[in-house]
């Protein structure tokens, strides 16, 4: 969300999109994203995330509302607005018969960048994204992770001010995902506004500062990750016990907000204002020693599920 001091990279007002089939994918979305922001757009399948990204990128035509990219209205100068954007779509969308370098260089050409200017930048991107040894390989021969990195390299060849990433790490292994996270953080630190849609809420929590949750074509919550997490009704923690929990111990612990997951794991629901220390102490008095405390998945995931269920 723009704090009013930075110019808006994206400004959307009352955006509606009704498909030819009559499906209302966006029901009046309003959203402002400041330049330099790392923004996550979250929502269940079919919520309208990809439609919103498609409208911004020029792949879908809006029904009504206004959209500005870096101060340029898509109604007044869509070609200029598109020049500010780089997009990494959810589905692979390159020519499978072309080589990695050709795909990137051609994309530069479509943005008006001559080959001799684009080539050094393309080689640098290929190197940075770990595709150097696949430079002259046909796209169809790349692994899933390489194809995704190719799409990132292609989207950055024209040095966009706003990068749209639609589920960029879907199907990518953990190590590669971490590498991509580092890459995106550096890109954002260098000034690129990043808008990310993802199903991995942990990813959104780690990377983004601002979040909007979209459901059924409407934004139901928007704000900083910190503020969303601060307003959580409860936090769920997993407690690993030193020894298996006996039935007697479980009886003594029944007054506590604790559920037994398995012999050596308990689930603790922490209400706002409560501290984990209180419960560790109480468990200790009844003879249950805790060896480890873990988050039960992403904290943002809990906020997300809570909001979606309420909507």
């Amino acid at each position: 969300m723009s704090d009013g001091t930075k110019p808006a990279a994206i400004k959307i007002v009352d955006l509606k999109k009704v498909y030819g089939t009559g499906v209302e994918a966006l029901k009046g979305v309003s959203l402002t994203i400041a330049e330099g922001e790392f923004f996550a757009l979250l929502g269940p399948n079919g919520a309208g995330k990809s439609t919103l990204i498609s409208v911004l990128a020029g792949l879908a035509i809006k029904t009504s509302g206004t959209v500005e990219v870096c101060g340029v209205s898509i109604d007044e100068n869509i070609d200029k607005a598109k020049s500010f954007i780089g997009i990494v779509p959810q589905e692979f969308n390159f020519n499978w018969f072309e080589t990695v370098i050709d795909i990137i260089i051609n994309q530069a050409g479509y943005y008006g960048i001559p080959r001799h200017v684009a080539m050094p930048r393309a080689n640098e991107l290929i190197e940075n994204l770990g595709l150097a040894d696949k430079r002259d390989t046909q796209a169809m021969k790349l692994s899933g992770g390489m194809k995704r990195r190719l799409m990132i390299a292609r989207s950055l060849i024209h040095e966009p001010r706003v990068l749209l990433l639609d589920e960029p790490t879907a199907g990518v292994d953990v190590e590669l995902r971490r590498g991509m996270h580092d890459f995106l953080r550096e890109l954002n630190a260098a000034g690129t506004t990043i808008i990310l849609t993802t199903h991995y809420l942990e990813e959104a929590e780690q990377l983004s500062r601002e979040v909007a949750i979209i459901n059924n074509g409407s934004i139901i919550k928007q704000g900083s990750v910190k503020s969303l997490l601060a307003n959580m009704n409860s936090v769920t923690l997993l407690l690993d016990t030193v020894a298996p929990i006996s039935t007697a111990e479980l009886q003594l612990a029944r007054a506590l907000p604790i559920t037994r997951i398995d012999d050596t794991t308990l689930q603790l629901k922490l209400a706002p204002g409560e501290t984990v220390n209180d419960y560790i102490r109480k468990l200790s008095t009844i003879g249950v020693q805790i060896s480890n405390i873990r988050n039960n998945g992403s904290r943002l995931e809990e906020v997300f599920i809570d909001l979606i269920q309420k909507d």
């Binding site: 990128a57 020029g58 792949l59 070609d79 200029k80 598109k82 020049s83 954007i85 997009i87 779509p89 589905e91 692979f92 969308n93 390159f94 020519n95 051609n106 994309q107 479509y110 943005y111 008006g112 292609r154």
Partner: peptide, 10 residues
């Protein structure tokens, strides 16, 4: 879907 490369360009 590589038509999208052209459609997103300026």
């Amino acid at each position: 879907r590589n038509l999208e490369e052209l459609l997103v360009s300026p």
